Computed example of a mutant assay.
Amino acid sequence: MSTPVTIDSTAAEVVAALEALEDPKVRAVNEKHGDDHGVNLTRLREVAKPLKKNQDLALELWATGYTPARLVATLIGKPRVFTQAQLDSMLREAYVPKVHGWLVNYIVKKSPHAEALRLIWLMDDDPVVASAGWDLTTERVMKQPEGVDLPGLLNVIELGMGSAPDRLQWAMNWCLTQIGVCHEEYRERAVSIAERLEVLKDYPTPPGCTSPYAPLAIAELVSRREG
């Protein structure tokens, strides 16, 4: 690895440190999941840690377009400082799955603009953008369901999840699962929808892991909550 980064490091120095960590074997694994880089994420976090929270550097790293640099940007950016327009633009650039996920989970969910962006993205014609809206909606379903039209969500899922593109389908399926887990009064309907649509029913699940098939996932997660 090149000279370790410090709190005063420039974007170019951070990028150089990340490039020194590129591993062809890691890249081969990541590319199977749609991620275009070969940096081990534990090592990437080690690069980010000494940088602390640094909004200006985060924006510079994001602007490079280099996936590991964008991942670091999501770790050092200040969620409450990004404008709504910045986050909307960044999300629409974040087609790499890991960048998309970290941006939503580490920045957008902690932003004061999360609810406004949820409503905008949920209705977007781009299925990848819409999937972020569903991710934020699932957060509301789990943690702040007041004011969320759960029956309406179930209607939308019932009508659209079966034919949705892959990443949108996964996001809708997780929302369906969490409605069933967190809201007992809608559990039976959530399971019924999932059984009829059979989304991810045959998804290969390693031993010891929870199946993404909603009826099985709901049953297991409810059992954990009640156990």
Score class of each variant (00 low, 15 high):
residue 33 H to D: 12
residue 182 C to G: 05
residue 117 L to I: 15
residue 90 M to A: 06
residue 6 T to E: 01
residue 37 H to V: 04
residue 57 L to N: 04
residue 95 Y to T: 09
residue 108 V to Q: 03
residue 24 P to C: 06
residue 105 N to D: 15
residue 27 R to G: 03
residue 173 N to F: 02
residue 163 S to T: 11
residue 182 C to T: 00
residue 3 T to I: 03
residue 141 V to A: 15
residue 78 K to Y: 00
residue 153 L to E: 12
residue 187 R to G: 07
residue 68 P to C: 04
residue 95 Y to F: 09
residue 155 N to A: 15
residue 128 V to A: 13
residue 159 L to T: 14
residue 34 G to Q: 12
residue 47 V to W: 06
residue 221 L to H: 02
residue 195 E to W: 00
residue 55 Q to S: 09
residue 51 L to M: 07
residue 111 S to E: 08
residue 223 S to P: 00
residue 221 L to F: 00
residue 143 K to E: 15
residue 129 V to N: 12
residue 170 W to Q: 15
residue 222 V to C: 11
residue 147 G to S: 13
residue 70 R to A: 04
residue 150 L to R: 12
residue 41 L to A: 09
residue 98 K to V: 14
residue 133 G to C: 14
residue 137 T to E: 13
residue 89 S to N: 08
residue 90 M to C: 01
residue 194 A to E: 04
residue 78 K to G: 04
residue 34 G to L: 12
residue 182 C to E: 10
residue 10 T to D: 00
residue 3 T to C: 00
residue 57 L to Q: 04
residue 158 E to T: 11
residue 77 G to M: 03
residue 35 D to A: 09
residue 210 T to G: 00
residue 222 V to F: 06
residue 181 V to R: 07
residue 13 E to T: 11
residue 130 A to Y: 11
residue 134 W to I: 15
residue 197 L to M: 07
residue 128 V to G: 13
residue 226 E to W: 00
residue 147 G to E: 10
residue 122 L to W: 13
residue 78 K to C: 07
residue 182 C to K: 10
residue 107 I to L: 09
residue 76 I to K: 01
residue 71 L to S: 06
residue 126 D to T: 12
residue 212 P to G: 01
residue 155 N to K: 15
residue 13 E to Y: 00
residue 147 G to F: 11
residue 150 L to C: 14
residue 215 P to N: 02
residue 169 Q to T: 08
residue 209 C to I: 05
residue 180 G to T: 05
residue 212 P to S: 01
residue 199 V to D: 03
residue 58 A to K: 02
residue 216 L to P: 00
residue 77 G to V: 04
residue 145 P to L: 11
residue 152 G to S: 12
residue 146 E to Y: 14
residue 128 V to N: 13
residue 98 K to G: 05
residue 78 K to M: 10
residue 81 V to A: 09
residue 2 S to K: 03
residue 97 P to Y: 08
residue 167 R to F: 11
residue 225 R to W: 00
residue 39 V to C: 09
residue 173 N to Y: 05
residue 76 I to Q: 00
residue 205 T to E: 05
residue 56 D to K: 11
residue 78 K to I: 10
residue 92 R to N: 02
residue 214 A to H: 02
residue 224 R to Q: 07
residue 213 Y to A: 08
residue 121 W to M: 15
residue 45 R to Q: 10
residue 116 A to Q: 14
residue 80 R to G: 10
residue 183 H to M: 08
residue 25 K to R: 08
residue 15 V to Q: 03
residue 165 P to D: 11
residue 110 K to N: 15
residue 59 L to W: 03
residue 167 R to T: 13
residue 105 N to W: 05
residue 45 R to H: 08
residue 184 E to G: 08
residue 15 V to S: 01
residue 209 C to V: 08
residue 165 P to E: 12
residue 219 A to H: 05
residue 11 A to Y: 01
residue 188 E to T: 07
residue 220 E to C: 03
residue 185 E to G: 04
residue 56 D to C: 07
residue 209 C to N: 06
residue 137 T to D: 13
residue 39 V to Q: 09
residue 206 P to F: 00
residue 46 E to V: 02
residue 175 C to W: 06
residue 51 L to R: 04
residue 86 Q to G: 02
residue 160 G to C: 10
residue 49 K to P: 06
residue 117 L to F: 14
residue 180 G to C: 07
residue 26 V to A: 07
residue 12 A to K: 06
residue 69 A to F: 08
residue 97 P to H: 06
residue 186 Y to P: 07
residue 169 Q to S: 11
residue 186 Y to Q: 12
residue 138 T to S: 14
residue 32 K to T: 13
